[in-house]
Amino acid sequence: MAGRIWSVDSMRLLAMAFIVSIHTDPFRGLGVYGNTLNFVIDSTARFAVPFFFVTSGYFFALKVGSRDPTTYFIKRATTITSLYIFGLLLAFPVFLTGTAVRAGDTNEAILHSSLLKIGEFISPVGLLYYGNSVSEILWFLPALLFSLGFICLAILSNSTKYLLPVSAGLHVIGLLGTSYTMVVDIPFPTRDALFFGFFYTSLGYWIASSDWQPDSEHSSFYLGATILFSILHIGERYVLGYVLTGETLAQGVYTASYTISTVFLTISLFLLLLSRPHLGRSTSVPSWGKYAVGIYVVHPAVLYVLERTDGPLRQIDIEATNTILWHLLLTPTTFFGALFVYLAAHKAGLIEIDGDHLPRLDRIRKQWPY
């Protein structure tokens, strides 16, 4: 199964749509029914980020099996870094402008708020490791970079057999620091490479490097397991968010990131896709999968702009954000708006979709010779 896996390519685009929906919060705040729908959507969508980690680890294992791991890691690191910088270059001016607009009418207030925001943006730990200093959404890219780095070090030190148990132990700490805080108080952030991304990336690496591969005869079993764990995933989050706390959906939506069931849901889904590698081949969906990461890095800026249209609309007595129409349109508008910006950046020569995402003058001149 070293060739192209069409089902995984197809799932990339769907998974990215789910990630966008997590950030757009469809139907939240529209009464108990709106909150219930949002809770189900959010809970269902939580497989998406782990899926991308698992996929990255899986294909990393396939690639390094026939080449120098250091050379390939450097290549992957260069791509991930250029994507991250591209996302930052888009989000930084948009978020900074929003801060300045909200600061007030005086130049002094605008300058003070802007300087504070810039200070947050350039926080070394937040910028280089956690990936949340400019936009919380972009944390995946530094986490993936470090996770692949950990795996590369394990390969070079001939200790890959320890990857899964070590990363699993660290992930338990990560879960305690996010969804199971009632058990123990973890005094540091755990949504990062070490406590989150490392485990799922190692899981993908382990699946690829093992001799066992899912076959089509068991695809029905994997499908059933995926459905079962999807239901358990929603149920576990409901227990954590409402049964244990005594709160109700009328009061708000529980949005803790990931739980124990997320692990099993992600594994069963990925095995299902591997057991049916040609799923989606007859459609155009797999070819669009390569745009998923571009939508990811662009959509924070697009979403920020769309959400800020609420202010001007309120000035003319339009409460758009409290309408069903707004909630129906925000997710697809953000998704396709991000895709449009990404393709436009490629068309303008600012980036190469299949290559470097750092704007380069020579590439722009080639695209716009006049």
Rank of each mutant, 00 (worst) to 15 (best):
F150H: 07
F340L: 12
W288L: 02
Y205H: 14
L37R: 04
S287A: 11
K290R: 13
H112L: 08
Y33G: 02
N35T: 03
S133Y: 09
L127C: 11
S261F: 13
S159N: 15
E352W: 12
G29C: 15
H278R: 06
H23A: 01
L274P: 01
T283G: 15
K75R: 05
T78N: 11
S113G: 03
F340W: 07
H327K: 03
S220N: 11
G241F: 04
T71W: 09
T81K: 03
W368N: 02
G280E: 11
L83K: 05
I22H: 02
F336I: 08
I19G: 05
V285S: 14
T201W: 05
P277K: 09
L62A: 10
A77K: 11
Y180L: 08
F27S: 05
I318T: 10
V54L: 02
E108Y: 15
R281Y: 02
R12V: 00
H112I: 11
I227H: 11
H327C: 09
P187T: 00
H171D: 01
P369L: 00
S230V: 01
G349E: 00
I260N: 15
F196T: 15
G29T: 00
H346M: 06
S43R: 13
T190N: 02
I207L: 12
N38R: 04
S209Y: 15
F27M: 10
T70Y: 14
Y205N: 15
M1G: 13
F86L: 06
K161A: 08
V253F: 10
V298E: 03
G65K: 10
L330A: 13
L88T: 02
K161E: 14
F60T: 03
I318C: 03
V49G: 00
F264L: 11
P369C: 01
T333P: 07
L274M: 14
L273Y: 12
T99G: 07
S114P: 08
S167K: 02
T266M: 05
D356L: 08
V293A: 15
T190M: 00
T255H: 15
A143L: 05
G3M: 11
H299Y: 01
V305S: 05
I110F: 13
L111N: 03
P187A: 02
L350G: 06
S220F: 10
E352F: 03
L343D: 00
I19Y: 02
L273M: 15
R28N: 06
N107S: 09
A48T: 11
S209D: 12
S66M: 01
S7Q: 09
A344P: 10
V183A: 03
I295M: 07
S268P: 09
S219K: 04
F39W: 12
V101A: 07
V293G: 02
L156W: 11
D356V: 09
F86V: 05
F52C: 01
L328Q: 03
Y58F: 04
G3E: 08
S216K: 03
L274I: 00
E108N: 13
T245C: 09
F146S: 03
V172Q: 07
T262R: 13
H299M: 01
D317E: 14
A193Y: 06
L13Y: 14
T248E: 07
V134Q: 04
L90E: 09
F336K: 14
G169A: 01
T97E: 02
T79V: 15
P277L: 14
V302R: 04
D192V: 00
I155M: 13
L228W: 07
P50K: 08
L249M: 14
S21D: 08
L83G: 13
F188M: 01
A292Y: 00
G3R: 10
L339E: 06
I80M: 08
S220M: 07
T333N: 12
